[in-house]
Design a protein around this nucleic acid. Structure first.
Length: 183
DNA sequence: CGTTTTTGACCAGCGC
DNA sequence: GCGCTGGTCAAAAACG
């Protein structure tokens, strides 16, 4: 199989603050869209994201461990993650890749914390979280029931620590896909 | 034995 | 207000 790679960048509200992941985009010259493309019967609530915000500047997870502690009580619900923030707008970076495997190693260590089956999709969606303390980066992987070979990876937040493994950039990912595909 | 995955339950938001 | 969907937690199982 020819390792074709179709990557698309969805959403982006930081005009003056390119995330670390952006370097990946530069490699493939991804196209940026201003709207989050959901399935068909979407609720388009994703468009609620504001522009100017955040993100990295506010979070600064340096001592963000408290955020996790706050969520210790389920009854209290989630949210309230930011102490001084009133609204929670987190940028998402959807990454659509053509691959038979959903485990695209980007150099970070992820811990799966949930798996839910979504409607209109036969395959469940997996939720991952960066294992590094203080790094609240989340990632979710979903496969399209229509095309098994298409995997949508959505990154949320940005890492505040160096990658343990060699970055490899996207080239290595491509190599990985080749290996998996080859077998 | 420590860490990650699995899985069910739960909560919040939205639509009806 | 109820039901559906999506997102998260947490306990136990699985894995090295």
């Amino acid at each position: 199989m020819d390792n074709q790679l179709d990557a698309m960048f969805h959403y982006s509200s930081s005009p003056t603050s390119p995330p670390p992941q952006a370097d990946v985009s530069s490699y493939l010259s991804l196209n940026m869209a201003n709207q989050y493309n959901n399935s068909h019967a979407d609720k388009k609530h994703y468009s609620n994201y504001e522009q100017s915000d955040v993100s990295r500047s506010t979070s600064s997870f340096s001592t963000g461990e408290s955020s996790e502690l706050n969520m210790s009580i389920m009854g209290s619900g989630k949210v309230n993650v930011k102490k001084g923030e009133k609204k929670i707008r987190k940028p998402k970076y959807a990454f659509q890749t053509r691959s038979q495997v959903d485990i695209l190693d980007d150099g970070y260590r992820w811990r799966k914390y949930g798996q839910k089956a979504v409607k209109n999709n036969k395959f469940p969606r997996s939720y991952y979280r960066c294992t590094q303390q203080g790094c609240n980066v989340k990632k979710q992987v979903q496969r399209l029931s229509k095309d098994e070979g298409v995997v949508v990876t959505t990154y949320e937040g940005m890492h505040t620590h160096p990658i343990e493994r060699s970055t490899d950039n996207f080239e290595h990912i491509l190599t990985q896909m080749q290996i998996y595909s080859s077998s």
